[in-house]
Design a protein around this nucleic acid. Structure first.
Length: 489
RNA sequence: GGUCCCUUCGUCUAUCGGUUAGGACGCCAGGUUUUCAACCUGGAGAGAGCGGUUCAACUCCGCUAGGGACUGCCA
């Protein structure tokens, strides 16, 4: 669905097209750090950035924040790429790796030093610790005594470079989600820009990179709302204009606490493994914290058309598995059978089932008859198992009991002839045959339906009778019936 | 401790000073029925508390309570 819609967006975003509502083309970004799994919250942030870019005809960029060399891994970078690709949220330009820009970060600090908006701080770790204790006791923020000293006073020892933040006044964050938020500058500390070893810190790197990547709208988790004020001060220290801010509330677990492992899943890859379709995830995630009136189910094009940051809800949302399942079921029913067959085949293989060509054919046949009840592709796979089995089928005790009951067995024998004589092998015809048979026998379908299903599936879950018969095909169906008829009670 | 954010049915949300507070998922009941699911019909179900402002408050303001984030030479 995304793939189909993408070209239209690409056209809208082409050069020369300017969205009537903005004087400057919108640039958004997702900036995850590659330190492990890709959190579902990151995925939603990416979605909102992507939607807003599509909505405005702007660009959506990706920056890998790999400045923490200790924790960043190449594998985790790949996880991010894979996660975004699976979700269909690929960036409009090649990704930027923050670590590769360290040099630019330090020159930015040099500029700040020259402008007097940053200073070298020679406090030792011990002194810092002591100051932190004092500051906390006095209910104020950490201040270094070095901020007002001249370079001549510099001792010969390691230093960090700090932002020389204003001591008075206030900083206003006109947040697009939270509304105007005011911070008193006295409450904002002089954050470290460059560490003792000369490497840039997160807040500095973010500001420099966002500015130079041309990011106009910073849409991110609201755990960064406080940082927005500090970062605004860095923008000012650099003589730059801050972007438009939008801070999204976090996604919580069903119990309202921070989403974690014990809630079932938190990584994008886990949702994929659990059998959720990416378009279902997009629809669900979009509805988590944003909405468009009473619209519940919509495709990417509609979402992009409707999406506006201003409509994002300010409160955290809880993950609701039941609703996700409902949406996933909806999209499974909409999906191309061939695509579902491929997904289901992968699932069977991952469960160590060897699939032959005739199996794949069988899958393609059966999926249309079992998809309606499937909430995930895992369930879909379960529902196809009966069709993949080889004759003679293994029977569960209950199924064996059903088909070997003397009275039922005789009736099944007569039904076998009725089916063999069916003029065609499609749902409507076979439903008619079954109904006619019930009438001829003077019984309800309950008298032989369960037994027929047992004969066809051996006791595994199977769809409604006509569907199962059509999915299996005439030869296989009759063959399975014959097998069951010759079963010893 | 300090700063900041959040608070409508169980859950996601609509409402943007005047509504019988709407929808969706879930739940309950009934229907359909050869299992499960799906499907159809109906139902129960909400403004955290307390004070203001106003002719009128879910909506604006304040306080309280509860939840959360930040307060790192992590990002």
């Amino acid at each position: 669905m995304l793939r189909g819609a993408a070209p239209a967006f690409a056209a809208a975003a082409s050069p020369g097209f300017s969205f009537p509502m903005s004087d400057k083309s919108v640039v958004t970004r997702i900036a995850p750090s590659p330190t492990g799994a890709m959190h579902i919250g990151t995925a939603r942030t990416a979605l909102f950035n992507w939607l807003y870019a599509r909505h405005t005809g702007g660009k959506f960029l990706l920056r890998i924040e790999d400045t923490d060399r200790e924790r960043s891994t190449e594998a985790a970078v790949q996880v991010i790429f894979d996660g975004l690709a699976w979700l269909g949220l690929e960036a409009d330009e090649t990704p930027v790796f923050q670590a590769s820009r360290a040099e630019r970060h330090t020159t930015a600090v040099d500029e700040m030093l020259a402008r007097g908006s940053a200073y070298r701080d020679y406090m030792t770790p011990d002194e810092l610790e002591a100051e932190r204790t004092h500051a906390r006791a006095e209910g104020r923020v950490v201040r270094s005594s070095w901020r007002d000293l001249t370079p001549n006073d510099a001792p010969d020892r390691p230093f960090v470079v700090r932002l020389k933040a204003p001591l008075t006044g206030a900083t206003l964050i006109d947040d697009q989600v939270k509304g105007p938020v005011t911070f008193q500058n006295k409450d904002l500390d002089d954050l470290i820009l460059l560490r003792t070893d000369g490497t840039p810190t997160y807040n500095l790197a973010v500001v420099v990179d966002d500015h130079e990547m041309g990011v106009t709208h910073v849409i991110r988790g609201d755990d960064h709302l406080n940082n927005a004020a500090r970062q605004t001060l860095i923008y000012q220290g650099l003589g730059w204009t801050p972007p438009v801010w939008a801070h999204l509330p976090l996604i919580h677990g069903p119990d309202g606490t921070k989403l974690s492992k014990r809630h079932g899943a938190q990584a994008v890859s886990e949702f994929a493994d659990m059998g959720y379709l990416p378009e279902a995830m997009r629809n669900y995630l979009a509805k988590l914290g944003w909405g468009h009136g009473d619209d519940e189910i919509f495709d990417d094009a509609q979402a992009a058309l409707w999406f506006d940051i201003k409509d994002v809800v300010g409160a955290p949302a809880r993950l609701d598995w039941a609703k996700l399942n409902h949406l996933n079921n909806h999209y499974i029913r909409l999906a191309e059978p061939a695509r579902l067959a491929a997904l289901v085949a992968d699932i069977h293989r991952s469960r160590d089932l060897t699939l032959h060509d005739d199996h794949l054919t069988a899958l393609a046949h059966v999926i249309p008859f079992v998809r309606d009840g499937a909430k995930t592709t895992l369930e879909l796979a379960d529902a196809t198992v009966f069709a993949l089995a080889r004759r003679p089928l293994g029977f569960t005790d209950k199924a064996r009991e059903l088909v070997t009951n003397p009275e039922t067995r005789e009736r099944l024998g007569r039904l076998r002839h009725a089916l063999a004589a069916a003029p065609a092998w499609d749902v409507a015809t076979l439903e008619g045959v079954n109904r006619g048979f019930a009438e001829a026998e003077g019984v309800g379908m309950g008298k032989f339906g369960p037994a027929l299903r047992a004969a066809l599936s051996g006791g595994a879950p199977a769809p409604d009778l006509a569907g199962a018969l059509v999915a299996l095909g005439k030869d296989e169906s009759l063959g399975r019936l014959d097998d069951a008829l010759s079963l010893n009670g």
